[in-house]
């Protein structure tokens, strides 16, 4: 069953189509990679899915129940429900700098799900342990390395028990060692059969995608030019060949 269904989505800006008739489906528990050259619309697509960015035509369905329609302001409740189902991890982490690591991860359970402080704390410690940061609970984000911050962000997103998680270039702000450390966490989550969270990962790290992703979607100038198994998509003479050779060193 599809957790996210995108139907003929079009987003324009000044007569130019940033996203041009994109349709794709993310199944429950599926790990999908999205690749494409810079400026092809990858980030915009993710932001459209969670309603951070309006679009002009088409529809986004989440869980078959919550719908955002092009050209229409989505009802507030729809957006809230949808965002509780689909989480997001940003390239620049966007941790809350005035809260400790623990409070960052508690924010969702506490302020979104209305859980008690004790419950939220249990949930938050669990996820922080899961991403390997059990010993940093009372640190502030500014006291962590980039890789640690991104792992907190992942824990924060998971703490509200989403059914899907969108990653927008989660490792491109990090040096290779920290990037690998974050990818290992994502890999580990993807492999956990108990977790059942679908993942959509925008990344230039093709070797990591090859390892983690079930399917890969290729965007080029706002159009979806390929959807298929990761191996095929990322093959040296596949649909990504013309833009990966120069940008992807590994």
């Amino acid at each position: 069953m599809a957790i996210i269904r995108i139907h003929h989505l079009v987003k324009q800006s000044g007569g130019h189509r940033i996203l041009d008739d994109v349709s794709l489906t993310i199944a429950q528990g599926q790990v999908a990679g999205i690749v494409g050259p810079s400026g092809s619309g990858k980030s915009t697509l993710l932001r459209c899915i969670v309603g951070l960015e309006p679009f002009d035509h088409g529809e986004v369905w989440v869980h078959g129940r919550w719908q955002i329609r092009g050209g229409v302001t989505a009802p507030r409740d729809t957006l809230l429900q949808l965002r509780r189902t689909v989480g997001m991890v940003f390239q620049q982490f966007h941790l809350f700098p005035h809260m400790t690591v623990l409070r960052n991860v508690m924010a969702g359970p506490l302020h979104v799900q209305g859980k008690s402080r004790a419950e939220a704390e249990t949930i938050a410690s669990h996820w922080l342990e899961r991403v390997g940061l059990k010993d940093k609970l009372s640190a502030y984000p500014a006291q962590l390395s980039g890789g640690q911050q991104q792992r907190v962000a992942i824990a924060r997103a998971l703490a509200v028990q989403p059914q899907a998680l969108l990653f927008d270039e989660p490792t491109s702000a990090l040096d290779p060692r920290m990037a690998a450390e974050v990818m290992r966490v994502i890999d580990d989550l993807a492999d956990d059969p108990a977790l059942q969270v679908a993942m959509v990962i925008v990344s230039h790290d093709l070797s990591a995608l090859r390892r983690i992703a079930d399917v890969v979607h290729v965007l080029d100038r706002g159009r979806l030019v390929y959807s298929g198994p990761a191996d095929e998509a990322l093959a040296p003479n596949g649909p990504t060949a013309h833009f990966t050779s120069s940008e992807q060193p590994r």
Binding site: L52, R83, M88, Q92, F96, A107, H111, A157
Partner: peptide, 20 residues
């Protein structure tokens, strides 16, 4: 990004303002 991260968590705009 602070507002967006809070909204993406599922907070209402008012909660995001208040807590973040």
């Amino acid at each position: 990004g602070q507002m967006e991260a809070a909204l993406a968590l599922g907070m209402t705009p008012l909660t995001a303002l208040r807590t973040v």
